[in-house]
Design a binder for these strands. Structure first.
Length: 421
RNA sequence: GGAGAGGUGGCCGAGCCGGCUGAAGGCGCACGCCUGCUAAGCGUGUGUAGGCUAAUCCCCUACCGAGGGUUCGAAUCCCUCCCUCUCCGCCA
C-alpha cells in the first residue's frame, strides 16, 4: 500500500496512477475519511491525556487515604465519552484501511502509459527462430505422440486445468524445476527456501493479492486459508512484521512451488494444453533490497530469468509492460515471452517486477539503515520460470520430424542419460 | 484430538492479590571517559507507530501474542481466538 501521508500530499499523482492502472480506488473518499479519522484521533488523544492525568491524581489521593469520590464521578462521564469516540475511531480506521488497500502502486516514471497489453513495448529480443524443414507441430500433438501428458485423466480426477504428467513428461517437468533451481543457486547466488503452499489471509493481503483477487484464489473455508497463486506470497511474507538488520540485506531467495489459480473470468482464452492451468509449477525468485538499489536489481533479476531461456536456447523477447497491463502492486514489470513455433506465437513464461515499498508497507517489512533509522525495504520478484509454457517451448522448438524431441543440453544432467524422447 | 505450562523491549528475564512500569535487573549494542594493548572498569544512551514541531530535543497518545470486556485507571482481573513448549493419543 501507499503511505497515507504520501497520498495526502500527492492527491493528483495518485489519482492519475489509479486511472493509468485501470483501477477504481476512490481517492476523494479516502482523503475525506482520513481527515475525519485524524480529527477523531486528535480528540481521543486529548481526552486520554486528561484521563491519564486525573487517574494519577486519584492514585495519589488513595495513597494518602484521602477522598477521591468527587474526581471519580467526574471521570465516569469522561470514560463514557472516550468509549464513544474510540468506537468511532476504530470504525473510521477500519474503513480507511480498506480504502488504502484498494490504492495501487504508482508506476515508475519510465513506464509507458497505456490501456492494455497491446501497448506493451518490446525492449529486446534474443535468439534465432529455428527454420523448420517440416511443419512444426503444436505441443499438444507432440505430447500426445510421446505420451508425456494425460490431460483427460487430470480432468477426471480433478477438473480441466489440472494436468497429469506421465513418464518422460513427468521426468522432463521435474528436470526443468531442478535445472532452474540449481541454476539460480549456483550461478546467481540465490538461497533456496521450501515454503508452505497454503497461507493465511494476512499473508495473502501482505503481497497485495487480497482484497482485489479473492475470486481468483482457492480458499479453504474451515481455516480461512488460501492455496498460493505463486511462491511470491509465502516467500515475500517470510519477513512480515520484522525489522531486518542491514547485514541481512540484500536477501536473494528462490523457491519452487506449485501455483494454484482459479483463473476466474478467463475461460476459453489460450486454454489449449498447458497454456493456462489451474495448477502449475513455477520457480520464483524473490529479493529484499535496500530502497536505493531496487531499480538496478530489477534489471539484474530480469537477466537472471533471461539466462534460463538462454541456457535452454529458446528464442524470446522482453516486454516492458505499460501501466494498464501491470499488476496492482507493481511499479514496473518486465515480461519474458518465449517463442513457440508450433503455435507461431510468444508465450509469457516470466514476469519480473519491482514493487518498491508497496508490499513492504503492507506486510510491514522494514530494515534498520546505517544511520539507525527504520525504513521499508523494497521487494522484487520474478518467475524463473513458470514450467508449463517452458515445457511447451521445449517441445515445439526441439521437435524432430519423426515426432520425437531432442533434450536441450542444459537438461541432460537431469534426464537419466536420455538425449531424446 | 485429550491434559498441562506459557506467550513481556534486539535477546534473557522480573512484574501478574490493578495506580509515577514503556516497563526492574542482566546481556548485547552505540557514544564518551579512563587505561593501554588483542581485556577489565566507569558514565551516558539504546523500541515502534501516530500527533505536535523548523527539529532525529521536549511534550501528548497508542502498543507487554490478537481481539473484546470490567474499572476513574489493566502488562496485571474476566471472556474469545491464535501460537509455542511438555506429556498422552493418532499417524507419514
Amino acid at each position: 500500500m501507499l503511505d497515507l501521508k504520501f497520498i495526502r500530499e500527492n492527491v493528483d499523482l495518485v489519482k492519475q496512477s489509479v486511472k493509468n492502472k485501470n483501477e477504481k480506488a476512490d481517492i476523494d473518499a479516502l482523503i475525506n475519511l482520513d481527515e475525519k479519522k485524524r480529527k477523531a484521533q486528535f480528540e481521543f488523544d486529548n481526552l486520554r491525556a486528561e484521563q491519564n492525568r486525573v487517574s494519577k491524581e486519584i492514585a495519589l489521593l488513595k495513597k494518602e487515604k484521602k477522598d477521591a469520590s468527587e474526581l471519580l464521578s467526574e471521570m465516569q462521564s469522561l470514560a463514557t465519552k472516550i468509549k464513544e469516540i474510540s468506537v468511532d475511531l476504530s470504525d473510521l480506521s477500519a474503513s480507511l484501511d480498506t480504502y488504502v488497500l484498494t490504492v495501487p502502486n504508482i508506476p515508475h516514471s519510465s513506464v509507458k502509459i497505456g490501456k492494455n497489453e497491446e501497448e506493451n513495448t518490446i525492449i529486446r529480443e534474443w535468439g534465432e527462430k529455428r527454420e523448420f524443414s517440416f511443419t512444426p507441430k503444436e505441443h499438444t500433438e507432440i505430447a500426445e505422440g510421446l505420451n508425456l501428458l494425460d490431460i483427460t485423466r487430470g480432468a477426471k480426477i480433478t477438473g480441466s486445468g489440472f494436468p497429469v504428467y506421465t513418464k518422460h513428461g513427468a521426468l522432463l517437468e521435474r528436470a526443468l524445476i531442478n535445472f532452474m533451481l540449481d541454476f539460480h543457486i549456483q550461478k546467481h547466488g540465490y538461497c533456496e527456501v521450501m515454503v508452505p503452499h497454503i497461507v493465511n489471509r494476512q499473508t495473502m493481503t501482505g503481497t497485495g493479492q487480497l482484497p482485489k483477487l479473492e475470486n481468483d484464489m482457492y480458499h479453504i473455508n474451515e481455516d480461512d486459508f488460501f492455496l498460493i497463486p505463486t511462491a511470491e506470497v509465502p516467500v515475500t511474507n517470510l519477513y512480515a512484521n520484522e525489522i531486518l538488520p542491514l547485514d541481512k540485506i540484500p536477501q536473494k531467495l528462490v523457491a519452487y512451488t506449485p501455483c494454484f489459480r482459479r483463473e476466474a473470468g478467463s475461460y476459453g482464452k489460450d486454454t489449449k494444453g498447458l497454456q493456462r492451468l489451474h495448477q502449475f509449477n513455477k520457480v520464483e525468485m524473490v529479493r529484499f533490497v535496500h530502497p536505493d538499489d531496487s531499480w538496478t536489481i530489477l534489471e539484474e533479476m530480469c537477466q537472471d530469468a533471461e539466462e534460463i531461456l538462454q541456457a535452454l536456447k529458446l528464442p524470446y523477447h522482453v516486454l516492458s509492460l505499460c501501466t494498464g497491463d501491470m499488476s496492482f502492486a507493481s511499479a514496473k514489470t518486465y515480461d519474458l515471452m518465449v517463442w513457440v513455433p508450433g503455435a507461431q506465437k510468444y508465450l509469457e513464461v516470466s514476469s519480473v517486477s519491482n514493487f518498491t515499498d508497496f508490499q513492504a508497507r503492507r506486510a510491514n517489512i522494514r530494515l534498520r539503515d546505517a544511520d539507525g533509522k527504520v525504513n521499508f525495504v523494497h521487494t522484487l520478484n520474478g518467475s524463473g520460470l513458470a514450467t508449463p509454457r517452458t515445457f511447451i517451448a521445449i517441445l515445439e522448438n526441439y521437435q524432430n520430424e519423426d515426432g520425437s524431441i531432442t533434450i536441450p543440453d542444459a537438461l541432460l544432467p537431469y534426464m537419466h542419460g536420455m538425449t531424446r524422447i
